[in-house]
C-alpha cells in the first residue's frame, strides 16, 4: 500500500491563504542515488485554511520540488500510507492540520524502523506482511476444512464482536512501531502492531489457538516480555487502539500460561 504513489492535485480551496507562511523542514535522502546524502531542506509554503500536512506536501511537490517522495492514498486516515514523523512524533500527514503548529515551523522525517524508499516514503508493507505471517493473522481452526459450508455461522456475542472490531481498526500505518523505543533498539521485537493483531485473534472465538499456542508467538523477549511499557504506541496510534490495556492483558495471560 505504502508504495503507491499518485499525483493528484489537491491544493486546498481556490488560492485562499491564512496569510501565514509555513516553514517546512524535510529530511531528504534518496538511498537509490549513490551521491545522495541525508539533508534537511526547508520549504516555504503559504498556508491555506484547513491545510493538512499532506496538502502542504502536495503544494511543495507541485510548485517547489517535483522529486519529493511521500505516500498517500485515501487522504482520510483510512489507508495508513501517509505515516511520518511530524515534529518528533509519528502521525498521519493527512490527518494533521498545519494550524496545530503555532510557530508555523514543521519538521518532517520518514518513519524510522522501516526500510527507507526515499525522502518521506518508507516500506511499511514489507514489515507489516512479516508481522502478519509471524502472528498468523488469520483464523486458525483445524476442523474448518470439514465444516459444512451451507450451515449458518455460529452467533457471536455482541461484546466480543465489538472488541474484535475495535482491534481490527488498525490501518497498519506503522506509527506505533516507529514510536516504540524497544522496537528501535531491537529489530526482532514483534512491536505493538503485532500485539494488537494477536489480541484480535485471541479475542475471536472462531480462532482455536490456545494460550500455549500463543505463547509460541509471544513468549520471549522478542515478544510481550520484551515490551518495556513505554507507551509510545498507546500515545501515537492515530486510531486509538487500546495498546495499554491489551498489551498488559497479553502479558498477564502469557505469565499464567
Amino acid at each position: 500500500m505504502s508504495e503507491a504513489k499518485m499525483n493528484v492535485s489537491t491544493t486546498a480551496g481556490s488560492g485562499q491563504t491564512t496569510g501565514r507562511t509555513l516553514k517546512i523542514n524535510i529530511l531528504r535522502f534518496n538511498p537509490q542515488e549513490p551521491d545522495s546524502k541525508p539533508e534537511m531542506v526547508t520549504y516555504k509554503v503559504p498556508e491555506a485554511p484547513n491545510m493538512t500536512i499532506f496538502i502542504a506536501l502536495n503544494y511543495i511537490r507541485e510548485n517547489l520540488e517535483p522529486s519529493l517522495q511521500f505516500d498517500f492514498v485515501c487522504r482520510a486516515g483510512i489507508c495508513g500510507s501517509c505515516g511520518m514523523v511530524i515534529n518528533g512524533r509519528p502521525d498521519l500527514a493527512c490527518r494533521t492540520l498545519t494550524s496545530k503548529f503555532f510557530l508555523g515551523e514543521i519538521t518532517l522525517m520518514p518513519l524510522p524502523a522501516f526500510e527507507l524508499i526515499g525522502d518521506l516514503s518508507v516500506n511499511t508493507g514489507k514489515f507489516m506482511r512479516a508481522v502478519s505471517e509471524r502472528v498468523g493473522s488469520w483464523i486458525h481452526d483445524e476442523e474448518e476444512k470439514q465444516k459444512d459450508l451451507d450451515a449458518l455461522e455460529e452467533r457471536m456475542d455482541p461484546d466480543t464482536a465489538d472488541e474484535i472490531y475495535e482491534l481490527d481498526r488498525c490501518i497498519e500505518c506503522g506509527c506505533c512501531i516507529s514510536a516504540c523505543g524497544t522496537m528501535r533498539m531491537r529489530e526482532q521485537f514483534l512491536g505493538a502492531r503485532g500485539f494488537m493483531s494477536v489480541a484480535r485473534f485471541h479475542a475471536d472465538p472462531r480462532d482455536k489457538r490456545s494460550d500455549e499456542d500463543w505463547y509460541e508467538v509471544l513468549g520471549d523477549d522478542d515478544g510481550v516480555f520484551g515490551c518495556m511499557s513505554l507507551m509510545g504506541c498507546e500515545d501515537t496510534c492515530p486510531k486509538d487502539l487500546p495498546h495499554q490495556t491489551k498489551i498488559a492483558y497479553l502479558r498477564r495471560r502469557m505469565v499464567d500460561t
Partner: peptide, 29 residues
C-alpha cells in the same frame, strides 16, 4: 539490566529516539 541498551548502536538509537519523541514515558524510562 537485560533491558538496557546492549551496545553503542542501541544506546545511540535509544538516545536519539528519546530526544526525537519528547514523550514522557519514554524519557522516564
Amino acid at each position: 539490566m537485560r533491558k538496557l541498551p546492549a551496545n553503542w548502536k542501541q544506546w545511540r538509537t535509544m538516545r536519539s529516539h528519546v530526544k526525537m519523541m519528547k514523550h514522557g514515558d519514554t524519557t522516564q524510562w
